[in-house]
Amino acid sequence: MSLMYRIQHPRDALVWEGEIPLFSRYTMGIAGERFFREIMENGRLMGTRCPECDLIYVPPRLYCEQCFAHLDEWVEVPSTGQVHTYTIVHADLDGNPLEEPRILAFIHIDGTDGGLVHYLGEVDPDQVCIGMCVEAVFKDKAERKGGILDIAYFRPVG
């Protein structure tokens, strides 16, 4: 038992190029459906509340991850929040340098226990800080399609 001989030169090391074409649909589900319809039709954010744990989930969920209760109490939440943490991304999905670095943040939505991950806009990278107050900028109603990109980005308040 062992590898008795090994390939001696790269020209002899053959490869076969393959690919897996993957195309999927992602059902948004009951909670996702309502969240994105409210953005699309009314330009507002909604969450679900767990009365047992006193938690407000954004994104909304139908179940509490702490106590596993079914959640059916929907509450409107502000479209404002604070930058909990952020980064300036310099690479695209293929690992190539971005021409224009982009700022991504986790925005803790005011009055909730959750928030959204999104881009920051109308701000220079060196002006961003943890704790910065920001607000969602919704796309024009005609451009909204029902998805997270119906929010164009978050921008500093004031």
């Binding site: 999927s24 992602y26 948004m28 996702g32 994104p59 909990h84 943490t85 952020y86 980064t87 300036i88 991304v89 690479a91 695209d92 999905l93 690992g95 982009r102 991504l104 943040a105 986790f106 959204l116 991950v117 999104h118 881009y119 943890i130 998805g147 997270i148 990109l149």
Partner: peptide, 22 residues
Amino acid sequence: DPVFNRPLAAHPYFIAGMEMRR
């Protein structure tokens, strides 16, 4: 998450960058 996160089309190391800063 395919609905909430993936459409942002960001290099997934952004998560590490955000975690590191925090």
